[in-house]
Amino acid sequence: MDIDVKKVAMLSRIRLTDDEAAELGPQLANIIGYVEQLSKVDTDGIEPTAHPHDAAMPLRANIVTNGNRRDELQASSPKIESGLYVVPKVIE
C-alpha cells in the first residue's frame, strides 16, 4: 500500500517536515498493511456497530443550563481581544 503521507497530513492539518514524512510514511504503510487483513473477513449481511449496546440516542429539553461563561471559557485561548478569538487575517 502506497500512502501519500503529505496529503494525509494536509487533511489532518499537521505540517510534517521532510524528515517526519520520511519516518511516518513506512510506519503508516506498515499499520495499514496490517489492518488490511480485515478485507478477508466475511461480513456479508452484517450491520456495522453504531453503539456497543445499540442504545437509542436520548433527547433532552433544549434549555440553557450553564449561563454565560464567556470569560472563563476564553481564559485558555492563546489570543483574545474584546471577547473575540483573534486569528491571522483570513480575507485579504
Binding site: V5, V8, A9, M10, S12, R13, I14, R15, L16, T17, E20, E23, L24, Q27, L28, I31
Partner: peptide, 17 residues
C-alpha cells in the same frame, strides 16, 4: 498546521494520520 505539528507528539500524529 504548525501549531499541531509543534503540539502533538509522534504517536498522536501517527494515529491522527
Amino acid at each position: 498546521t504548525r501549531s499541531r505539528d509543534e503540539g502533538f507528539g509522534s504517536e498522536v500524529k501517527r494515529r491522527i494520520l
